[in-house]
Write a protein that binds this DNA or RNA. Structure first.
Length: 263
DNA sequence: CGCTAAGACCGTCAGACGCG
DNA sequence: CGCGTCTGACGGTCTTAGCG
């Protein structure tokens, strides 16, 4: 069943130029920036939900897939947000209900295809989001929908609290993340090896923090996408059901007419 | 109330990767 | 090729929920 997912997606995007795929990208045209808007796609380069890739690609390639998606999301959305002087994506996520648009009308067959592929997408994403199946195994995250400043202040207050910090967490961790950019500190970088090491560790600490933050954001984004696709899938299935019903009714009335006219 | 398992988060290390 | 950055993996602490 999973093997058909990519096929459906490819069919959807390659044969119907007006098709849309859900993407965690901000809508640049809407007056109110929203997540989960439908984005036109001309190719499927960043579709992460290819089951074959998850199965057959090496670990490294899977990582690259993740990276591709992630960078697509972070770079584009954050650039757009900055350019438009609006809150961060996390803040948007918190304040905005994820809206939904259905695909342009398709034929019955097309509808059926879309519905099925969406179901596959949702199902596979769900399994993908299982930490055990993720290439990068992480647990759940509970504050990623908070605005960035809230999340970071939480982290900072936590790590800067001497009672809460870990033993290995020496005086370095109480520094603000950007503290190593301070000119005076930079001036010391070329000094003794222990100083160099301290600087490197501090940088890596910050990098790890940032990496985790991005990962959480990405996971959250994927989860929202799953929710959205499931909603869309339900709507399409319902629409298909109604259209089928209508079609059957018309067929029935047509046959009734022909039989009465032939008598 | 103490114990324990699970989850969240952190710092560090190691390896991959990109860049100059 | 060296260096910086990113990120998976590992092991640690802390918190919390559930149980006896």
């Amino acid at each position: 069943m999973e093997n058909t997912t990519l096929t459906h997606i490819e069919t959807l995007s390659s044969t119907t130029p007006n098709s849309f795929i859900l993407s965690p990208i901000l809508n640049t045209t809407a007056t109110t920036p929203t997540l989960h808007v439908l984005q036109p796609v001309s190719h499927v380069q960043s579709v992460i939900i290819d089951p074959d890739k998850n199965k057959t690609h090496t670990n490294k390639e899977s990582k690259l897939l993740i990276k591709q998606e992630q960078s697509d999301y972070t770079s584009r959305s954050e650039e757009q947000l900055l350019a438009r002087h609006i809150p961060t994506s996390n803040q948007l996520r918190k304040t905005l209900v994820t809206p939904f648009q259905l695909n342009p009308r398709e034929s019955l067959n097309g509808l059926s295809t879309i519905s099925m592929s969406m179901a596959n997408i949702g199902g596979h994403l769900m399994s993908t989001l299982n930490p055990a199946h993720l290439p990068e195994s992480t647990g759940g995250y509970h504050f990623s929908s908070l605005p960035n400043d809230l999340a970071s202040s939480y982290k900072h207050s936590r790590s800067s609290n001497p009672d809460l910090s870990s033993p290995s967490n020496s005086s370095n961790s109480s520094n603000p993340p950007s503290s190593h950019h301070h000119p005076s500190k930079r001036h010391d970088e070329g000094g003794d090896p222990t100083r160099k090491r301290a600087v490197r560790l501090q940088k890596n600490r910050d990098a790890a923090r940032e990496c985790r933050r991005k990962k959480k954001e990405y996971i959250k984004c994927l989860e929202e996408r799953v929710t959205g696709l499931e909603t869309q899938n339900k709507a399409l299935i319902e629409e298909l059901r109604q259209l089928k019903e209508l079609y059957c009714q018309r067929e029935e009335s047509n046959t009734n007419k022909t039989t009465t006219s032939t008598r």
